[in-house]
Amino acid sequence: MANEAMTAQMRDGKGFIAALDQSGGSTPKALKLYGIEESEYSSDAEMFDHIHAMRTRIVRSPAFSGDKVIGAILFEDTMNREIGGMSSAQYLWQERGVVPFLKVDKGLEAAADGVKLMKPIPGLDDLLEKAVGHGIFGTKMRSVIDAADRKGIAEIVAQQFKIGAQILGHGLMPILEPEVTITIDDKGEAEGILREEIEKNLEQLGADEQVMLKLSLPTSDDFYRPLIEHPKVLRVVALSGGYSREEANALLAKNPGLIASFSRALTEGLSAQQSDEEFDARLAEAIDSIYTASIT
């Protein structure tokens, strides 16, 4: 079964997860970094056409394959479109050997108790059913920690696990992403509280249930080892969180067992104006460096 093969790849595969899920307010910034100015499109539809063309170029590049990129996270609009005459998720798995995930959150609430919880996700069950129909393996949802506030962090982790249970109910693998902002003064303390709260919630999962975790690169090397080795965790991945690719790779390499799930750090240096030869070479260089850091 495809799902069993995908699970095995997520558990044992050497490589990293590409985060190709910029959406809404983050898309103009991603396009600008890619060399497409806001003046070049006049509607959301045109904007998403541009971002889909960018993602298609990445996914169809010879460098982008399951040998090094074991998974990719998509935005809903990307899932609904085609690549190479196939649905995007099917193309990823069948043609590239890359496990497809879907971003399902709808953005963040206003800050309270040092955190930004996820906004409600209306129609989530319908979206999850649709994802299953497209051949999606799992989901990703992000919330943000801005301070070492135990009440806020406990609430953010509880929310992630509650919605994660709903996702598990559809046979999908949830990636829980309680991101710790890398610039806060009490980052290390916040990570300590976060790890404790995650461990508490993991114990509430069913005997056969697992989740994945997407966490900021930790202040202390190998800090998330207990989570990486936890039987209820399929894989722990790291976001680049504002670090350059070079910085993120250096930090990642100090955390054996933690693999990348980079977005901006993956596409850094890519441009719409590059020839296919130059684009593919730049992407291959990025993929090789992130892969090496992920398997160190």
Score class of each variant (00 low, 15 high):
residue 3 N to M: 12
residue 6 M to C: 11
residue 11 R to D: 02
residue 13 G to R: 06
residue 15 G to Q: 03
residue 16 F to W: 13
residue 20 L to P: 11
residue 24 G to D: 14
residue 24 G to V: 03
residue 28 P to D: 09
residue 30 A to R: 15
residue 30 A to T: 02
residue 30 A to G: 05
residue 33 L to P: 01
residue 37 E to W: 07
residue 41 Y to T: 06
residue 41 Y to M: 03
residue 48 F to V: 10
residue 49 D to S: 07
residue 49 D to G: 03
residue 50 H to I: 08
residue 53 A to I: 08
residue 53 A to T: 12
residue 55 R to H: 13
residue 56 T to S: 15
residue 57 R to W: 10
residue 61 S to C: 03
residue 66 G to K: 06
residue 71 G to V: 08
residue 75 F to S: 13
residue 75 F to I: 01
residue 76 E to I: 13
residue 81 R to C: 00
residue 81 R to W: 11
residue 83 I to W: 02
residue 95 E to V: 12
residue 103 K to Y: 01
residue 104 V to L: 06
residue 104 V to S: 02
residue 105 D to V: 09
residue 106 K to M: 13
residue 112 A to M: 04
residue 112 A to H: 12
residue 116 K to F: 04
residue 120 P to Q: 04
residue 121 I to G: 05
residue 125 D to Q: 14
residue 138 G to L: 05
residue 143 S to Y: 05
residue 146 D to A: 14
residue 148 A to S: 13
residue 151 K to I: 14
residue 152 G to Q: 08
residue 154 A to H: 08
residue 155 E to M: 12
residue 157 V to W: 03
residue 167 I to V: 15
residue 169 G to N: 11
residue 174 P to Q: 11
residue 174 P to R: 09
residue 176 L to A: 02
residue 176 L to K: 00
residue 177 E to S: 09
residue 177 E to Y: 05
residue 179 E to V: 06
residue 183 T to F: 11
residue 188 G to N: 08
residue 190 A to T: 05
residue 197 E to G: 09
residue 202 L to E: 10
residue 212 M to K: 09
residue 212 M to Y: 03
residue 214 K to S: 06
residue 226 P to Y: 12
residue 227 L to K: 08
residue 228 I to L: 05
residue 232 K to S: 11
residue 233 V to Q: 12
residue 233 V to L: 12
residue 244 S to N: 10
residue 248 A to P: 06
residue 249 N to Q: 07
residue 250 A to K: 11
residue 250 A to N: 04
residue 252 L to N: 04
residue 252 L to E: 04
residue 255 N to H: 05
residue 257 G to C: 06
residue 262 F to V: 05
residue 262 F to G: 07
residue 265 A to H: 01
residue 267 T to S: 08
residue 269 G to Q: 11
residue 276 D to G: 14
residue 277 E to S: 13
residue 279 F to T: 00
residue 280 D to H: 10
residue 285 E to V: 02
residue 287 I to S: 02
residue 289 S to E: 15
residue 291 Y to Q: 10
